[in-house]
Design a protein around this nucleic acid. Structure first.
Length: 281
DNA sequence: CTCCAGGCTTACG
DNA sequence: CGTAAGCATGGA
């Protein structure tokens, strides 16, 4: 038991953890998750964030991006009444600074998949190949661990055609053939170019990793949901390009329209659609 | 049964 | 160049 509290401004734990950017947090009395192989429990009362973990406070602050100046970010992306309404409804939603490897694997699994299936696959991946922490929680398996896994032993994770892609990049990273962490220091465009070399990573997944793991806030991942939302809200601004090019056009428009923090705008737009459908448990 | 889900790769014009 | 089928799996 190692509880401490953090005073926060413009932070909402529930919005942050239930908006679909992370797949491993669960809510009971406390939110429970794993950061850097360490169990973390979190809950919020007003502006007070309570943490139960052996991790240092600075690690938690970094993970939840508590140093982001939301006033500045809000005023930067607040371009019209539509986005203003989303900011009002979901105020305090933060991007999370995910660990790159877990983020990459999670989003490789997201390809042509449902959030429910992704969550189940990632949980089973940790149960099968991660290290046990305590009462049913596991660390996320390292590239080294997953590089040793035979494809047929991955079958219980039910990842389908994505399993071989995960093993492939795990091996490349384990053998120092691919430097994932090094992308941190690259620009958005350079990092994107590098991520696109990974088998199973295209524009959308690269943009997710750049935004969620490497904090490139100018990234604007366009998936089927964002495509629909942007069509509804900003269709008149977007050229009717061919099916494949359309998502590029949307991302380009968003960067121009919302500016350098458009990644934050993307998160608020995405939560809008979660509320409309029945994705939530 | 068919269609689709936080797409990507490959094959074919 | 551009477009379209194929991919594992599970739920509606």
């Amino acid at each position: 038991m190692n509880v401490y509290s953090i005073r926060t401004v413009d932070f909402d734990l529930n919005n942050t953890l239930s908006c679909g950017q992370v797949f491993r947090w669960q809510k009971n009395q406390w939110w429970t998750g794993v950061i850097k192989g360490t169990l973390v429990r979190a809950k919020q009362d007003g502006d007070e964030l309570s943490i139960d973990s052996s991790l240092e406070k600075i690690v938690i602050q970094d993970y939840f991006r508590l140093d982001d100046d939301m006033q500045q970010i809000y005023s930067s992306i607040n371009c019209d009444v539509k986005i203003a309404s989303l900011i009002k409804n979901y105020r305090g939603l933060r991007l999370i600074r995910q660990e790159p490897w877990e983020c990459l694997v999670s989003y490789i699994c997201s390809s042509n998949n449902t959030i429910r299936n992704i969550t189940n696959s990632i949980r089973r991946l940790c149960e099968c190949f991660g290290e046990r922490i305590e009462n049913g929680y596991y660390s996320f398996p390292s590239p080294e661990a997953l590089s040793m896994v035979k494809l047929c032993d991955m079958e219980p994770c039910r990842m389908g055609f994505r399993a071989s892609r995960v093993i492939e990049i795990a091996s490349r990273i384990a053998q120092r053939e691919f430097d994932l962490e090094g992308i941190e220091s690259l620009s958005f465009e350079e990092g994107r170019r590098k991520l696109l070399k990974i088998n199973g990573v295209g524009n959308k997944i690269a943009d997710c990793v750049l935004l969620f793991a490497f904090g490139k806030l100018e990234s604007f991942p366009v998936d089927t949901h964002i495509e629909q939302i942007m069509g509804r809200l900003y269709g008149e601004h977007i050229k009717c390009a061919s099916k494949n090019k359309k998502r590029d056009e949307i991302a380009k428009f968003a960067r121009r329209y919302f500016g350098t923090y458009c990644g934050y705008a993307q998160e608020y737009l995405y939560l809008e659609d979660l509320g409309r459908d029945k994705h939530k448990e």
